[in-house]
Design a protein around this nucleic acid. Structure first.
Lengths: 139, 139
DNA sequence: ATGATATCTGTACAAAGTACAGATAAGAGT
DNA sequence: ACTCTTATCTGTACTTTGTACAGATATCAT
């Protein structure tokens, strides 16, 4: 576990409980984009914990800005530790492999639609859909 | 009901059943972005039909490219009749009002991420999140 | 060490959508 | 118009993903 993670938790006044650290450890060491089910299963290899604890922790960490949730259409939510840069995602339609994409149009990207309709916009969520190299071959 | 809609159905070799026409009629005349529950309720003011018929028809129409489904994070899916231009959406975080956004970067937009990782990309889904004018006032 | 309360457990519940079997009816062919 | 094929519809049961709630536990401040 990276020590700076514990710093982040303390800064957010969150307790350093074993289930919380386990959830973060899974995200740091067992894949960059994982759903709650995977995180629960992996965390249970370290300790015993309930489904509710997994969801509570994921929600608390998202609220604190320590992890980020993405919700691809028709799929369970995924969680990742890369936060703060509002990067985007590219997902395979067949196997759902997910990779990060830096924004193509500069630094604070995509927050400028052609017409804002009077809205105050704070986020642009972008998901690219396609076929990953492996699934292209097996088609 | 616009006559061209029936043409579209025939072109797709889909039967013109009353439930199917009712679903399309709701989307044409009772709001541009509606979820399955709303569509079912509105269609039931015209005729009696089951939940399954609503979902089956929506799925069939999406598959035929006659309507489009969008799935905002944490919300039920919305359906719209504007298809073929891959436009985007702007959604209010508080009241979930949803408006269409033309793509800011040209004609076949957003299909060029900074790095494609070998994927063959066929769609870029963009959702802008913010506060609509009404909700800005009531905050 | 002690206490306040954030967190965890476990069960029940909820929302959104799908599976399946049998009944019905739309459209093709006569 | 009549019949047939089969797409579509109905209704119930089920699935997935996630939340609500009450009570037990354990973390951190003091």
């Amino acid at each position: 576990m990276h020590p700076e993670v514990k710093e982040l938790l303390r800064k957010s006044k969150m307790r350093l409980t074993a289930p919380r650290l386990a959830v973060l450890d899974v995200l740091e060491h067992e894949g960059k984009h994982r759903d709650a089910e995977f995180i629960a299963a992996a965390a249970r290899r370290r300790l015993k914990l309930s489904r509710q604890a997994v969801y509570d922790n994921l929600n608390a960490l998202v609220a604190a800005g320590i992890i980020r949730r993405i919700e691809p259409a028709g799929r369970p939510a995924l969680y990742e530790t890369r936060v703060g840069d509002n990067h985007h995602h590219l997902i395979c339609r067949r196997c759902y492999a997910t990779v990060d994409i830096d924004c193509a149009v500069g630094h604070a990207p995509c927050l400028q639609p052609s017409e804002d309709h009077g809205f105050v916009i704070d986020e642009a969520e972008v998901v690219y859909w396609g076929l990953c190299p492996t699934c292209q071959q097996n088609s």
